[in-house]
Design a protein around this nucleic acid. Structure first.
Lengths: 218, 218
DNA sequence: TAGATTGTTAATCGATTAACAATC
DNA sequence: TAGATTGTTAATCGATTAACAATC
């Protein structure tokens, strides 16, 4: 084990490992090798071993990794051994879809508050959580020790919401709005806007041999 | 301009550029430099110039990039100068949220078909599209020349749906299900599962100096 | 002309993969 | 023991950034 700084690429693979290991548990598989993991997850086995070795010697030579032990370790690394409170800002379609997803729950992530500006939404319940007006955001976040905010408001409001979240003490943001947020360096932001993902897929629909971009004339 | 193979990282930035350029158009900005772009999008200006230069000489030395010209070029590169038909499989909460997002529309992406297995859903309308039973998938996809599939079914069904989409002739998949799909190499898959994104955020909530993962005992 | 900014090469940085000794 | 598989080093690959001549 080394004490290098762990790269984002490594951290983002940990939940993928965790997810698959949980599946293995359900199938009552006790042990797994980096080779098997690599095959199922479409990753290089050496990469998987290296990723895990950043955090400790979790495997056994000649055997592989004990599934439940590795789950426990990854959960610990990701801070999922404690409950992590999440706030959702924006109770529109997408926000509702996300709050109904209680897949987080089993991983100790819990949406504990939902906010919206629209009067018609405020006071209604989404997945047993009452939608609050946005001016209660700071209060609620502080009181409930919320650490992560999920932004599902329109792009035009996203920066303002992010600023409020940050001044309320939030540490990380999952941003679904189609804008690049300006945030201090100690705040972690992951962009989850799927429109850019979808548009980039379009690039691969055509054999570019047929197409000469440079000489495309207006 | 070169004829190297363009990396995925470059392609994924193109929609980000496009999105911001569209904003500039609305503000009636005519010209933009890589420096300005870099500042707003939190990217290195040299990277932006290099990205664009893969596809042609779009800028003017001493001036910068003509906003509307660059928009046109990027749209052409991404194949967004023609309508691209999309199918959505899974009319649950998330599927509904995505189909209501008609932000694609202005970029020539259109959801033309929605499928589900649940009888209660079939025949109902989502955003003016009638939900079809999944056994009509192949037929509809072929008839409507659908090129991209968005998978919003449960993980347990995702692989089966992907297989059907592929045999129906689809070229690219945006996968929201929490599984790694097995697909032929000529099929482009982007994973959009936000649970892994969210879980990875948890890693950054704690100063790891306080925490010694290696010596964490079970 | 002077200032600004591109396109591109070279340098750097970082991430992935191969290879293998250690060892279960 | 023989076979399997880890942890880790070294090699490779690829992506980002710096620097600058060209030029508007």
């Amino acid at each position: 084990m080394k004490s290098e700084k762990i790269s984002d690429a490594v951290v983002r693979r940990l939940p993928v490992y965790l997810r698959f290991l949980n599946q293995l548990t359900m199938q009552e598989v006790l042990t797994v090798s980096s080779q098997e993991l690599g095959q199922k997850l479409d990753l290089n086995p050496a990469q998987i071993r290296k990723d895990l070795a950043y955090f400790g010697d979790f495997g056994r030579k000649g055997i592989g990794y004990d599934v439940s032990y590795l789950i426990e370790k990854i959960r610990y690394i990701l801070n999922l051994d404690q409950q992590i409170n999440v706030a959702l800002i924006g109770a529109g379609n997408l926000g509702q879809a996300l709050s109904n997803y209680n897949a987080y729950l089993k991983d100790n992530m819990k949406i504990v508050a939902v906010f919206d500006t629209y009067e018609g939404k405020i006071g209604t319940s989404i997945n047993n959580i009452v939608v609050q007006p946005i001016d209660q955001l700071t209060d609620t976040i502080v009181k409930n020790n919320v650490k992560i905010g999920i932004i599902t408001v329109p792009g035009s409001e996203a920066q303002r919401v992010a600023d409020e979240l940050i001044s309320a003490g939030i540490r990380a943001i999952l941003n679904f709005a189609p804008v690049i947020l300006k945030t201090p360096p100690d705040i972690r932001v992951h962009n989850a806007d799927f429109t850019t993902d979808l548009l980039s897929l379009a690039y691969y629909l055509q054999d570019k041999d047929d197409k000469d971009v440079a000489s495309h004339e207006s």
